[in-house]
Write a protein that binds this DNA or RNA. Structure first.
Length: 366
DNA sequence: CATACGTGGCT
DNA sequence: TAGCCAAGTAT
């Protein structure tokens, strides 16, 4: 169809002039770098990814470097990015690429989908952007852009189905599938934004049905916010006379899986009793020094921070199965959640600056 | 189809 | 302020 051809060409052309400079947008593209960037970008704003991508690639420049890394080192490098299963999956994917694909990132969607952590979107993104294949991709940006262009005020599976079908139609018409797909996402990220879209700057404002009907602000409808249960926790700062601090590794599954933390007691019903924990650990405690509150995608976490009074005996780590003593200076090398990083900062054990005190990102549109 | 899974910027 | 949402995937 002529309209679709104009849309596909218009977006690709717009991208060639308005693409943001991002560290993985090299020419030629490195498929391994594309894999890292795409996994890092899952449910994560590009500005956050751009801050962390270079460090990751510097530490693990090739898929072989990542494949032979230790899991704890990969997780530590991922600390603060969230959705930590991505780091484990990426590590496992690198090992599979070395073992099953001779160290080369596969180029077909079918092969890519066999890698852990690589779903429909990520497989399409790598196949199209790194290898130039005409494969469709749909992320949050693309779904919004295509729903608006077609004026389809639908949600859920119907919206997803429409977006994937239209993405496939359009990418098949694009002379450069990579530029079209990336342009579609870039357009959603910088122009066709969820609120206050800048239609006057849009390369497809002419064929856009939502704009013609004045519906660009109401498509798509916002999703209802899911209910959050509250998780209560008590963290204990315990130090010994040799400048070490007691830390423990979280379980391998669930929230913050495999990350390190101050010894923590959790409860769904309210804050754990400090007296009981002090008795269990055989230490006197004072606090709470502070209470840290974090809102996650699916729950609210409230943690009270206590401090053991005086140096603890060295064999205390046997009271907690997954705990060990770590020199305070080495804490920064452990993978911890952003909540734990805050707790360690408050306790004076951590010198890494908080995200809020860091310089803002320097990604600009145009 | 619903839920678990993080974090932080923006309005 | 409190939601909304971000280059989603696995179960």
């Amino acid at each position: 169809m002529t309209r679709d051809r104009a849309i596909a060409r218009g977006i690709a052309r717009w991208f060639s002039e308005h693409a943001r400079e991002l560290p993985w947008r090299t020419s030629p593209r490195d498929p391994y770098a594309a894999l890292v960037a795409e996994v890092m970008a899952q449910q994560t704003q590009i500005a956050r990814v751009a801050e962390r991508f270079g460090t990751f690639l510097a530490r693990f420049p090739t898929v072989h470097d990542l494949a032979r890394a230790r899991a704890g080192d990969v997780l530590a490098l991922w600390a603060g990015l969230g959705y930590y299963r991505r780091a484990r999956n990426l590590h496992a994917a690198a090992r599979e690429i070395v073992e099953r694909f001779d160290g080369r990132v596969p180029s077909s969607v079918a092969d890519l989908r066999t890698l852990p952590g690589v779903g429909r979107y990520t497989a399409g993104a790598i196949a199209s952007i790194a290898f130039g294949r005409p494969e469709p991709i749909v992320d949050g940006n693309v779904a919004r852009v295509l729903l608006r262009i077609d004026g389809r005020d639908v949600t859920g599976a119907e919206a997803q189905g429409h977006a994937w079908a239209r993405a496939a139609d359009l990418v098949a018409l694009a002379p450069d599938p990579a530029a079209f797909n990336e342009g579609l996402m870039e357009l959603g990220a910088t122009v066709c934004t969820p609120r206050s879209p800048r239609c006057s700057d849009c390369p497809v404002r002419a064929p856009c049905a939502a704009r013609r009907a004045g519906l660009q602000d109401s498509i798509p409808k916002p999703k209802p916010t899911p209910r959050r249960t509250t998780l209560h926790g008590l963290c204990l700062v315990v130090r010994d006379r040799r400048g070490r601090c007691l830390v423990e590794r979280r379980p391998e599954h669930g929230l913050w899986a495999g990350l390190w933390q101050l010894p923590t007691w959790e409860s769904r019903r309210g804050f754990p009793r400090a007296e009981a924990i002090a008795a269990e650990m055989g230490v006197a405690v004072r606090g709470p020094i502070t209470t840290i509150v974090r809102t996650l995608s699916h729950r609210r976490v409230r943690v009270r921070l206590y401090e053991a009074i005086g140096p603890a005996r060295a064999n205390l780590c046997r009271a907690r199965p997954r705990s060990r003593w770590v020199a305070v200076g080495a804490l920064a090398g452990l993978g911890v959640s952003s909540l734990q990083a805050e707790a360690l900062r408050v306790a004076g054990l951590y010198s890494t600056p908080s995200p809020q005190t860091r310089r803002p990102g320097r990604i600009r549109a145009d």
